[in-house]
Computed example of a mutant assay.
Amino acid sequence: MKMASAPVDPETLVAELRARAAALGFDSFGIAPADARPDLPAKLNAALAAGWHGDMDWMAETADRRGSPQGMWPAARSVIVLGINYGPETDPLAILGEKSLGTISVYARNRDYHEIIKGKLKDIAGLLARRSGAEVKVFVDTAPLMEKPLAEAAGLGWQGKHTVLVSRDFGSWLFLGAILTSADLPGDKPLPESCGTCTRCLDICPTSAFPAPFQLDSRRCLAYLTVEHKDQIPLEFRVPMGNRIYGCDDCLAVCPWNKFASVSREARLRARPELERPALADLVQLDDAGFRSLFVGSPIKRIGLARFLRNVLIAIGNSGDPALVPLVEARLDADEPVVRGAAIWALRRLAPERADSLRLAYLAREGDSSVALEWTGDI
């Protein structure tokens, strides 16, 4: 997008952009030169070489562009990074002890943040284009752009030991959006990393997903496994999943900087009651229409019913509630292998004798498939 206009003094222009961002509900605003992080390509390539991206092949496929804003758009000179606070009203860790309920990550308990932020970014980008004549492009977590380190360079916070951006004002609860522009804008001063000796985010991780501070192996991360991973949840992570059915907030929620956080001002980011404490017994009975209706406008809808039921059935297997056995058995005949496999695991956990009585019949039906291993393998 490019719209010619009489040039404006950069300082004046930035003040206008900040004011507009605040009026639109953004809580943080910062600017960095597009080439502010020349260290990113090497860090990205090291993570890819270690395989930490799991089966997110798109990360490797876009590595050349992802390493720097100018690798994706050579005309970029400045990056405007904006943040919206999505701080929750309640402690996300409290529900982990209520095994009959499902835990949904805070960011997915209402509207998809991509939709909320992108329109606001376009408004600000349009103002920038009109006032400067510069070219602009907007991004919300869907393009090969490394928003978190760029936000660090723009002074919004720093990447904590859990690799998530930490803000002095909003803790770990910031959604990020970015505007790349051909305009040379005055940058903000980066903040120093301020985690100190704290390791709470590393220590609480139920799957030991951090090889070292500031490093994340997605293959061990429940946020990745419950959302991005398409196959069965690896056995070693099923019990640690507990009742987490979409995402994981443990490392974010435990950060001491959250003491300065506040509840989100954006109503569309506050938890819908039906997604804050959903009963596993209700969720496992969803059909496709019910799934789409419950999660309309939610990021959860994009993983599809099968993967969602896989997650719910693992949580049921961890619930210890034998009353859920009939609902588990109803999923043994599901069309999707990931659902059948998770149902078998849950049944063997909750009612091993009942599972033994069904095993031979279902093994014959499965033949040589990977699902058959769920009847005989470890649990």
Score class of each variant (00 low, 15 high):
residue 150 L to A: 03
residue 208 S to L: 05
residue 283 L to E: 10
residue 150 L to K: 03
residue 99 K to D: 10
residue 374 E to L: 00
residue 283 L to N: 08
residue 223 A to F: 05
residue 273 P to N: 10
residue 166 V to E: 07
residue 232 Q to Y: 13
residue 101 L to M: 15
residue 40 L to R: 05
residue 327 L to P: 14
residue 258 N to P: 08
residue 12 T to A: 13
residue 260 F to H: 11
residue 374 E to Q: 10
residue 9 D to E: 15
residue 157 G to K: 02
residue 344 I to W: 13
residue 338 V to Q: 08
residue 69 P to Q: 06
residue 280 L to I: 11
residue 73 W to V: 04
residue 312 V to A: 00
residue 101 L to Q: 15
residue 38 P to N: 03
residue 138 V to A: 13
residue 20 R to I: 04
residue 287 D to P: 14
residue 123 D to P: 00
residue 340 R to T: 15
residue 212 A to R: 07
residue 281 A to N: 08
residue 272 R to W: 13
residue 280 L to H: 15
residue 85 N to L: 01
residue 58 W to G: 14
residue 83 G to R: 02
residue 152 E to C: 00
residue 51 G to C: 02
residue 232 Q to P: 14
residue 203 D to W: 01
residue 320 G to D: 15
residue 94 A to N: 12
residue 116 I to S: 00
residue 155 G to K: 03
residue 240 P to G: 15
residue 220 R to E: 06
residue 43 K to S: 11
residue 237 F to P: 02
residue 199 T to M: 05
residue 59 M to D: 03
residue 268 R to E: 11
residue 242 G to N: 09
residue 57 D to M: 03
residue 157 G to D: 05
residue 221 C to T: 10
residue 266 E to T: 10
residue 345 W to R: 11
residue 116 I to W: 01
residue 297 G to H: 10
residue 42 A to E: 14
